[in-house]
Nucleic acid binder design. Structure first.
Lengths: 243, 243
DNA sequence: CCAAGTTGTCTACTTTTCTAGACAACTTGA
DNA sequence: TCAAGTTGTCTAGAAAAGTAGACAACTTGG
């Protein structure tokens, strides 16, 4: 594509460059995490001044599509995943709705006795066996979040193994005959990623994460599971329904 | 809407004004044929210089959306209906595809004996009874064309009454079990509208029309009907598939 | 450490867009 | 016929967008 466009389109040059680059990001020409061509190179490609390219990149950076690193280059940030926080929130559905491929990967599955806190959350006795399932979730190849889920090991035997096979908590619950469940509470905070999560999320140290603590209820309103998820802040944006 | 837009959007002021007016035309704020507010009035409404408004109107005029008349005002030209001329050409489908509501209205339905010419076209004997159906077709409230259709009165009894009820030739044919048919020949010419058509098409005298003569065949390749349509030139543009 | 290459920032200039005002040419309705 | 209101066309200037070049600050790889 060249910018040898004599048509007075009424769209600024820098905007056309920005749009072109954004298309390149969306269609995979510039994959997430990759380095864009240098400003000079882009300027030559579009036959435009370097400052015009900088204007375009600044606009893209503002929107979170790219990130400039002095002395190194400008890098593609995966477009943020629009993540609605509703009572019926399913990772796989949300990612799929965004036209991306959801994937889950088991990190660990253990059984541990319920603390008083978890027991209260899940309506169990303290010390009751809990399955603790930790999973890494992707949209396409991009890690989006790490989620730790606790649920009754008595009610859901072998939940960890099932998750490993099915790669989706929704499917695990369906396996136990639970066709529908809903979000009872959602709490959102932010923090700096710790080293373990940073490595798994392919994230630099010192970067922010969004933390979502939630509890889901089954059809009768009984607590089903509770989870603690850490989202890469720069890869998602939560949409809160204000009804 | 005001243009008190401090966001550096990268879209020229005149373009935003033009887009706003175009939306107004599309959504009926400025109905086809109506006079737009004066340039000064538009300029004040959008808090913009009159020359900027003129730039916007010039762009719209170039695209055929409006027509300026010195001393009088600027008038809305209905956006031209993109009308592909294919082997499978259905008025209702084409108009519907353009997001507009197709409508047919019967003008007259008579039975007349086939002239030698029509007999040859339709593969009938000279003098065989022909249904002659004249209809006015709209896209939304805008008259687009008047079509006169001839078809065998023996094969399609009461075609006129059916058309009056169904308001679509496609549906009339479907009623006789004809699920598909295709355009055999299409001939396009132009002329000046006559008084009778001008009145029905809500068109000034002296304005041009596009004349389409066509014959449709059924699945076995036998002639089904032939028609003579007069399109308001300024309301359609034909798209010819160059394969 | 150094050289090459990158982004960040500054000044200066040109070109285009937008604003401002005046007046001509024309239409409309009283 | 005339006055009011419209679009068409000038000139002029201010504001914004784009170009051009230089150099600083920084990263990377040898």
């Amino acid at each position: 594509m060249t910018m040898t466009d004599t048509t007075a389109s009424g769209v600024a040059l820098w905007r056309r460059v920005a749009d072109a680059i954004e298309r390149g990001i969306a269609d995979g020409t510039y994959p997430a995490g990759e380095r864009l061509p240098g400003e000079m190179e882009i300027a030559e490609a579009y036959r435009v001044n370097r400052h015009t390219v900088r204007r375009a990149l600044a606009a893209l950076a503002e929107r979170g599509f790219v990130r400039a690193e002095r002395g190194s280059g400008t890098y593609v940030e995966a477009p943020r995943l629009a993540y609605p926080l509703r009572s019926r929130t399913r990772f796989s559905e949300i990612v799929g709705a965004g036209g991306r491929e959801p994937r889950g990967q088991l990190i660990s599955a253990t059984i541990e006795p319920a603390t008083r806190e978890f027991a209260k959350l899940l309506g169990l006795k303290a010390g009751a066996p809990l399955a603790r399932i930790e999973g890494l979730r992707f949209a396409d190849q991009t890690p989006i979040c790490i989620g730790t889920t606790w649920l009754s090991a008595d009610r859901f035997p072998d939940a960890g193994a099932l998750y490993e096979r099915m790669r989706s908590m929704t499917k695990v619950l369906a396996h136990f005959g639970i066709r529908d469940y809903r979000r009872a509470s959602t709490r959102v905070t932010a923090a700096i990623v710790d080293a373990a999560d940073a490595a798994r999320l392919d994230l630099d140290l010192g970067r922010p994460i969004l933390i979502v603590d939630s509890t889901d209820l089954d059809g009768e309103g009984k607590p089903l599971l509770t989870s603690h998820s850490r989202f890469v802040a720069e890869r998602v944006e939560f949409l809160v329904e204000n009804t």
